[in-house]
């Protein structure tokens, strides 16, 4: 199997984030591999390990795991993290014209890269912890015309039959869906517990190849990406006014009663 994983470098979710010129100010904060992408990396490794004669990913497994990311040069830090978990190689699309791209442009670039790789499966996290739109897997599936198996809480792959079955977990309940390769999957965070990179994995990751692609290499035109091509426009971004100073009291045996008084006053109880 050839598996691709779409990953993104995001500002550390512990960091305070700010907007600059209508887009997220990425320069001033620590950047990490999107937490939710780690579950996709882990799941890809488990799929390969379960179907490898050596029970390990990597050379000798007969399968490959390629990371695909779009972002600045700095995104190699997030890529190394995923490589140290066990992915084989990576493609990073970096181009100044990509700055400010919306989800439509991002999904277009990722789809064009995926098309060149002859992959069987593409795995994604359910969302990035910065934009939180949750639309990229569906957009990629639509653009490629591949099966969409998203919000997977369980994945079962049968490489001999070229089929994949998932349990989709949503607010309306659980559904079982199945499809033939190629397919686009997203996995929810309950699916597994991502491994910590081992020392051996971290050392090996330093030597794993990262292929750099420019926008021209992907075949996407510069007029289709970047902030000028975005199909939505941020008119203004304002820091939320701080919540008015609330009431804070220490329980002296009647804290519950005071709480109810407050709720009654606010017509909430």
């Amino acid at each position: 199997m050839k598996i691709a994983i779409c990953i993104k470098q995001v500002p550390d979710s512990w960091a305070e984030k700010k907007m600059a010129g209508g887009v997220l100010d990425r320069a001033g904060v620590d950047a990490v591999l999107n937490d939710l992408d780690e579950y996709a990396v882990e799941e890809a490794l488990r799929i390969v390990e379960a179907n490898s004669p050596t029970k390990e990913a990597g050379e000798g497994s007969g399968h490959t795991i390629t990371l695909i990311s779009m972002g600045p040069e700095r995104a190699t830090e997030a890529i190394r993290k995923a490589l140290s978990m066990g992915a084989d190689d990576a493609i990073l699309v970096t181009d100044p014209s990509l700055a400010g791209s919306d989800a439509l442009a991002t999904s277009l670039v990722l789809s064009e890269v995926i098309k060149k790789g002859n992959y069987d499966l593409v795995l994604c996290g359910t969302e990035s912890t910065d934009a939180r739109m949750s639309v990229i897997p569906a957009m990629i599936s639509q653009r490629l015309g591949w099966a969409q198996l998203t919000f997977a809480g369980k994945v079962a792959v049968n490489p001999a039959a070229n089929t994949v079955e998932i349990e989709r977990v949503t607010e309306f309940g659980n559904q079982v869906m199945s499809a033939k390769f190629p397919a686009v999957l997203s996995v929810v965070e309950k699916i597994n517990e991502p491994r910590y990179p081992s020392f051996k994995g971290i050392m090996a990751a330093k030597k794993k190849p990262i292929t750099n692609m420019s926008l021209a290499d992907t075949g996407v035109g510069s007029s289709d990406v970047g902030s000028a091509a975005a199909w939505s426009n941020v008119k203004e971004a304002l820091p939320r006014p701080p919540r008015g100073a609330g009431v804070k009291l220490t329980d002296e045996g009647n804290g519950g009663e005071k709480l109810v008084e407050f709720l009654v006053e606010k017509r909430l109880a």
């Binding site: 439509l104 739109m133 569906a138 957009m139 309306f172 975005a230």
Partner: peptide, 23 residues
């Protein structure tokens, strides 16, 4: 803005060439 709703929005946006705002 549910998991299903956002995916429907995402695909319809690509098909019709329309901009999308979520959440």
């Amino acid at each position: 803005s549910t998991a299903n709703g956002k995916e429907i929005a995402a695909r319809a946006s690509v098909i019709t060439g329309s901009g999308i705002i979520t959440d």
